[in-house]
Computed example of a mutant assay.
Amino acid sequence: MIEAIAHLIHRDYGAIVKDFVKLGFISDGVNLEPILPVLAKVFDQALEGGGAKNLNFQELASDLAQITFDYPFKIPPYFALIIRAIGVLEGIALVGNPDFAIVDEAYPYLTDESPRLRNALRYTIYGKSGVFDAERFIDVMQAFESFITAAKSGGGESMNGDMAELGMLQSQTGYIFPGFLSSASQQTQPIQTRAALAFLLSEKGNFFREFLLGY
């Protein structure tokens, strides 16, 4: 599912169709060519206006359910329950935060060390063209920061690894990067962005630095 979200971010609909086969939405052996343009239309509509950040999971699920009547596209019973649960939780989150984006909640799981998720992280940041996307990279770090902060404030278990230190940077509003002078433009830059970059340059940012250097 996380791999599908990574493909959705870059509108790689050909890869998403294959992801749906893996997830059981489309049976093995089905001709994917007639389904691809239909799914592309549904996803383009879901991403319209703000890209992946604008995605409403519940509305997308409803649109996907409509095409099951005309195409060999199905929703597995186990996934129907997942869709309902995510839809409800997304609705609650949007009440508390109108800017809530379901995509941001998937980003922290990309830091898992499994080969498949490491490849999904690489694809998320570099895309099909293999060009580094700095804004996407910062989005991933900010999402992980928010995840860590929420886990700590909720009294959950402490996070493993050096990346847990990222949650401590949220309060460092006056951070200045080594070798750079503070400027008006830097001071107006979003605090979360500065904190994410500060983490990347800190001793604790090993995971992301190794990821960049190892690509």
Rank of each mutant, 00 (worst) to 15 (best):
T149V: 13
G96T: 07
F147S: 00
A120L: 02
A85G: 10
A85W: 10
T111A: 13
R122E: 12
A85V: 12
A134I: 15
I75M: 02
L89P: 08
F132L: 15
L117G: 01
Y78A: 15
E105L: 10
S146H: 08
A134Y: 15
P115I: 13
R122G: 10
F137A: 08
L121D: 00
E145Y: 01
N97L: 09
S129P: 00
Y109K: 02
K128V: 10
P77E: 07
I92S: 07
G96P: 11
D139N: 05
L81T: 07
A93G: 08
L110S: 01
A80K: 11
Y126S: 01
R136V: 06
G91T: 03
I83F: 08
Y107A: 02
A80S: 11
A101G: 03
A134P: 06
L110Y: 09
Y78N: 15
K128R: 15
Y126C: 01
A143R: 01
R122F: 12
I86N: 04
K128H: 09
A120C: 03
P76Q: 01
G130I: 04
P77W: 11
Y109L: 05
I82C: 14
Y109R: 06
G87T: 00
R84W: 12
S114I: 05
P108M: 10
K128S: 13
A85R: 13
L89W: 02
I75N: 00
R122S: 11
P98I: 04
S129Y: 06
D139L: 07
R84E: 14
A106R: 01
V140W: 12
A93K: 07
M141F: 10
L89D: 07
P76T: 04
F132V: 05
A134L: 14
Y123L: 03
S129A: 11
V95N: 15
G87C: 02
A120N: 00
L81G: 11
R84G: 13
E105Y: 03
V103W: 11
I138W: 05
L94E: 10
A134Q: 11
L121F: 11
L81R: 13
D139W: 09
V131A: 13
P77T: 02
M141P: 02
T124Q: 02
A106S: 08
I82P: 07
A106P: 03
E105F: 01
Y107E: 01
F137C: 05
Y109A: 06
F132H: 14
R84N: 13
L89V: 12
R118V: 14
S146G: 04
I82A: 08
M141H: 07
L81Q: 13
R84I: 06
P108Q: 03
R116A: 15
R118N: 09
V88A: 12
V88I: 12
